[in-house]
Design a protein around this nucleic acid. Sequence first.
DNA 1: GTGTAAAATGACCCTAAGGTCACATTTGGG
DNA 2: CCCAAATGTGACCTTAGGGTCATTTTACAC
Lengths: 201, 201
Amino acid sequence: MPKQTFFNLAPGKRAAIAGAALAEFAHYGYDGSNINRIVAASRIAKGSFYQYFEDKKDLYFHLVDAMVEKKLAVLNPVADTFDQHTFAQNMERVFLAGYAFADSDPQMYAIGEDFVKKQPAFIAQFMERYSHEAQDFYLRLLECAGQRGELREGLDLQVTAHFIYVLCAHVPMELFRADREFRDICIRQLVGFVSRAVTKA
Amino acid sequence: MPKQTFFNLAPGKRAAIAGAALAEFAHYGYDGSNINRIVAASRIAKGSFYQYFEDKKDLYFHLVDAMVEKKLAVLNPVADTFDQHTFAQNMERVFLAGYAFADSDPQMYAIGEDFVKKQPAFIAQFMERYSHEAQDFYLRLLECAGQRGELREGLDLQVTAHFIYVLCAHVPMELFRADREFRDICIRQLVGFVSRAVTKA
DNA sequence: GTGTAAAATGACCCTAAGGTCACATTTGGG
DNA sequence: CCCAAATGTGACCTTAGGGTCATTTTACAC
């Protein structure tokens, strides 16, 4: 967590630093990011950086936290009404919400992409705090479908949730820059694929 | 390309270096790899390393070349008989061949995984030499299906080939460590997914 | 205005790791 | 056996970049 000093900063200055960091991590990913660049872009001294943050990871996790929070703000309303929809409908709602998030904040999205695809070690660390948020999300989706009697018999929910997670974490990312129509086609087919894999008939 | 000196080496020594490098890149990926470790593991002096290779990338590309060659040796026989099978059959054959490769040489597979997932810059460089081998592969698959009259109307083959490529590059990797039965289920469903997406009815 | 605590600063430090080089050793032809 | 060319060697160079610290500046209480 950033030091108190960071939160004492004038909002504009704090936003400048957060903005520079956001751009840096979105553009270069965690591995390629460079504190000197962040410091130069936000017009602060290198020493000041370490008045605000423990280290580079501290800042990075702060942004990842913000990203997760922002993404959950989009996804939670969807998850909270899982029981009012079919499994297939819920899958589609999840995808649409995900793209809404990505479209609304491409930099946050880019940080999430780098985080999920290139920082497996951090994910493990992070999950200790968020208790497997992502997998649990799809588990909730499956359990809800189970209560509606939609699921096939003999399904290992944990494994299936992971499978869905993998699919949803990787495939839509590649389509992010595609046009809306193509996206929609792919979403519909992915929804169908997953639905056929887990629901009866 | 490695220097002539490397190819003049006694086969055992050359193999020791190649083996150490293979293990290093497979374990740490390109970004985390360390020449000092490679040098220590293969019992040569640091200076000798640079008698054999221009630089770290030279060695890495040498291994990636070998990896691609080995993978193509498995995939080409499949591609050469595309016209004797349905699209769905060919998709399944491609997956099975891919897993056969991964199972037979997990280290080579790991290098490929890192290359595809974490080295987009290198892929671009590499493709200049291999003329989009991967995308072309799926394009051939689609074109063959087209000649058999299996494809839906109005399909953009280039885009579709890319979509299939993305799916086949990311999803199976995640399943690599899963047991055989689960793998087979997933392969069948993926084949079905892609088939329904591109073939008539 | 003065003193004290917080914050700002940038030159500097330190380590990791890729890459070099002057020298030593081996090899092979005459 | 001798010499030259090729090869082997590891101490050393260099750079990048994360992180530190002594010093200065600012903010604020009295």
